[in-house]
Design a binder for these strands. Sequence first.
DNA 1: TTGTAGGCGTTATCAA
DNA 2: TTGATAACGCCTACAA
Lengths: 356, 356
Amino acid sequence: MAKRASKRSGTKKDATLDQPRKYPSSIEVARLAGVSQSAVSRTYTAGASVSDATRAKVTRAAARIGYRPSAIPRIMQTSQSNLVGIAAGGLYNPLNTALLEAYTIRLQNAGYQVLLFHVTDTNSLDELVPRLAAYRIDGLFLTRTVLSRRSSEEFQKFHIPVISFDTLDKNDWVSSVCPDDQGGGRLVANLFVQRGATKAAYLAGKSDNVASNERLEGFRAALEQLGAKITNVSYCAFQYEAGYRAALEVLSPRSRPEAIFCANDLIALGAVDAARRLGISIPNDLMIAGFDNIPQSSWRAYDLTTVNPSPDSIVETSLMIFKKVLDRAIPGGVRILVPVTLIERASTSSALAINN
Amino acid sequence: MAKRASKRSGTKKDATLDQPRKYPSSIEVARLAGVSQSAVSRTYTAGASVSDATRAKVTRAAARIGYRPSAIPRIMQTSQSNLVGIAAGGLYNPLNTALLEAYTIRLQNAGYQVLLFHVTDTNSLDELVPRLAAYRIDGLFLTRTVLSRRSSEEFQKFHIPVISFDTLDKNDWVSSVCPDDQGGGRLVANLFVQRGATKAAYLAGKSDNVASNERLEGFRAALEQLGAKITNVSYCAFQYEAGYRAALEVLSPRSRPEAIFCANDLIALGAVDAARRLGISIPNDLMIAGFDNIPQSSWRAYDLTTVNPSPDSIVETSLMIFKKVLDRAIPGGVRILVPVTLIERASTSSALAINN
DNA sequence: TTGTAGGCGTTATCAA
DNA sequence: TTGATAACGCCTACAA
């Protein structure tokens, strides 16, 4: 606010005390270089035609006054922001973090800027829509919650691709990329039976979680087909502590299951610790498997069998969809299932126990 | 590209096939509402004077055509973007993730948009500066790498606050907020000695890491003051596997230390598993402590004593500095040490062993 | 409280 | 290849 800086001009600290020096504009560069403003603009536009001489003059002038081309007016002009939104949350789960990091790296390398928004489970993305729109994002990636139908129609209207992770929502516009949850459940069921279990429990996440329910469906179907069955399904938060508590219940003395499949690894790791607390030997008395293949699953204290959802493949697929929808090569509303793989470790096979 | 949509006008799919419908502008809203464009602008500007009648007309018209005010021209006009950069990386470490998430939530609640950039250890932030400048960010938070002196001078010139986490860099402009690394080292040293150790090892991170070296310095000083000593310092990556490997070395049969302090929790958890692999009993034969207090430290399989760097407090302090520098209440280049606390668990005290 | 008009820093069009 | 000039969509005096 204060303009008291003038009386101190010449001293070292001026920059700190002055009102913000504005960024130099292309006009100032042009003046200094003795060329037109358009010449400056062209110098910083890929593929524009500028002579080497002009380019050199501009570059030198720009360097002298510290010119940084602004992306803001360009957005107005081109109605393309190079800004891509990512709505993330639940970063306590390393899988979510890995997805976020992978998206960020790839988008950054592709020349986009990532606008990160935090969303909770309950809090729909809807209230963030005005912001997303205000910054004229070119696309949106969701790692959790779902937009309301109304909001996704809005994005559709402006042809802004929206790609969601692990959602079943039928939607004309929002595309989704999901690990093959049912397939993962089947893989685990097959493994359990193959290793000798006939009665298994499922430690689900929240009861309204689509992914968890899909995993259960595949698990149950395969078990029954193999002559085994589910003895128990319990629900809890998708976290270690919740898994620990839930497992303590499930593993109460009478009618204990021979195996537990957990909706995700965090729950499964809690279950492993619960079993140990009860003196139950893994995998001899109880097998446990999870889903996500987070780094902690391979830690030696756990050595957990799990399903790998192939996060890299998910991210790659999502970006492919993003680009295709952007280019109108395909319409929105695509749904792609990414194959999963089983990673067997010591929690289901004593043959795999510690050896390094 | 194609304008073939016209022949299908009236069908459902039009929006998908047309070229992107542009966002409606305030001018269109004004026309529809029968007011001036400024009236529309005022309606969406907090604290502007608009009559209820006008506001109502505008709001209705806006709703009808799906108007979303653009932030872009505002940025040009006010040279304030409400965009804040966060440079993050190493998200395999849950502490980094927690910081990122906390920053994001708080900035979002404060009305800012987060522009997320991924940086690696080696890759300096410098090459991202053109992008940061292009989007005219209002501030920058760093969780890792350091800007070059040249880049920070650029931010200083434009009075863009930069707040760094856990860095010692002397800098006129970049502020930093750090956990009290030396203090943490001292706390652990005191604990080790109190619990009976006289020979301790330090499992450092990378040898050029400031935080790790500070922790070592505090640890060493306190040990010596108490008549104990460091028998070994080894360096490794800040990760579980690296810690496991390094610990296997350190714990080779002869002259085994009685306690190991690790530069972070991931290393420490690897060390715990290494000790178990060697049949060493924790805490009886060996005490282990880490730094960061990541969630995994409290998992029952580990129950690791650690130093809590108070991430919430770090984030809060960083935001406070950000605002003050922005308001010119303080100059940049501040350095603040955030107190840490010791969290003792079973890895240093058998009295704390499993009881729930 | 309202409208008019100028400007923010680019890109895009068109002549030269 | 260059330079005028007109947008882009909003904010902000200023005048009414």
